[in-house]
Amino acid sequence: MKYLAFCVIWVYSANIYAVEQQIDSLFKAHNAIGSMLIESADGTLKYQYNIDSNASFVPASTFKIPNTLIILEEGLIKDTSEVITWDGIVREYAPWNKDQTLKTAFQFSCVWCYQRYAKKLGTVKYLEYLKAFGYGNQLTGRDVTRFWLDGDLRVSVQDQIRFLRKLDAQNLPIEKRHISTLKQLMLSKSDDKIKVWSKTGWSGKDGWYVGYLVSNKQTWFFAHHMVIKQRSDLALRKQLMMDVLKLLKIT
């Protein structure tokens, strides 16, 4: 019996090692540096790559996930179709240079839209929500309009998944209708085989692709942080995650 148990553990460990090697090969093929965490909803399966338990990063636009909930809960915007009037300032990213809605602001990661609401919310209110959500290190910094981009807020890949689990389970101090609205905004793919709720993020060298999916009636949570060395790396945030999910036969 002990011999059999040893064999099972050895085979399992060998399989995990083989998967890690394949993931490493994917990253090296693209000259990419990053870390990934993928977990089944029931917690019985976990795949991780290059995880440093002490590493945390600015969440960049992945913070639009909790930020959208806060804005809705505080009644700063009524629904996904309400117009957010453009301030007329021309910015580098063309899709931002026009009126927005919450739907387009989330889709195009419109920084000025969320900064407008951040000014109305203020630091004290954000600190209350960060604590209530248990989000990252729960810090902001001096500039309430930039704390998720280059301020003091930090999250790890583990933090990202912990929050996504709360979101999926509706285990947050937020009205359920607002959580439902956010999930509609996050839905990035939906067909007969798979549904994906996700968000990208980018600030300086920090790139993200986080979310969760349902495939074959199973729910999986994922978080990918990677080092952005040049703009062409941005496509790899999502691409590498989807390649790994396919490798693991999750999708």
Rank of each mutant, 00 (worst) to 15 (best):
Y49I: 08
I38W: 00
A14C: 15
M226G: 08
K249I: 00
V157Q: 08
Q170L: 13
G134L: 13
Q158P: 00
N216Y: 08
K131P: 04
F221Q: 00
G136I: 04
Y47C: 10
G136R: 00
R162N: 15
L149Y: 06
I84E: 07
N137S: 13
R162K: 15
Q239M: 13
C113V: 15
S156C: 11
N97G: 04
P173I: 04
S215T: 03
K246D: 09
S232L: 12
A5M: 13
K46T: 11
L127N: 06
D191F: 06
R231W: 11
W86L: 05
I89V: 11
Q158C: 09
M36V: 15
A5I: 13
K78C: 06
E128S: 10
D233L: 08
Q115H: 07
I89A: 12
K166T: 12
S203G: 10
T145R: 04
I33R: 10
W197C: 07
T181C: 12
Q170P: 07
H224E: 12
G207A: 11
L102V: 06
K193M: 05
Q158R: 09
V124W: 07
R91Y: 05
G34T: 00
G207I: 04
G34M: 01
D79L: 13
P66E: 14
S232Q: 15
D150W: 03
K64H: 12
T200P: 05
L247I: 12
K193E: 04
D87V: 06
T62S: 13
R165E: 07
L26E: 04
T123V: 11
Q160D: 07
W197F: 08
F222M: 06
R162Y: 02
I51M: 12
L240I: 15
V90N: 09
V227D: 05
Y126L: 08
F57L: 01
A32G: 08
Q100F: 00
E73K: 11
I194H: 01
D42L: 03
T251F: 05
G134R: 15
T44P: 00
P59A: 03
E39C: 07
V144Q: 03
T104G: 06
S13C: 09
V244S: 06
Q184A: 10
F27G: 07
D152W: 02
Y212N: 04
L149W: 00
A55L: 09
A132I: 09
Q48S: 15
F221H: 02
W220S: 00
Y3W: 14
F222P: 00
A235M: 11
Q158F: 14
C113R: 03
A18W: 14
T44W: 05
F163V: 03
L213Q: 02
D143S: 05
F6C: 14
R146G: 07
F222H: 10
T80Y: 03
S56I: 02
A132C: 08
K238D: 11
S81E: 15
S40G: 12
D152E: 14
W148F: 10
W112R: 05
Q218R: 12
D143K: 00
K195D: 12
Q218I: 09
Y49D: 01
I70M: 09
K195Y: 02
K176W: 09
Y47N: 13
R142W: 01
A32S: 14
I65R: 08
Q230W: 02
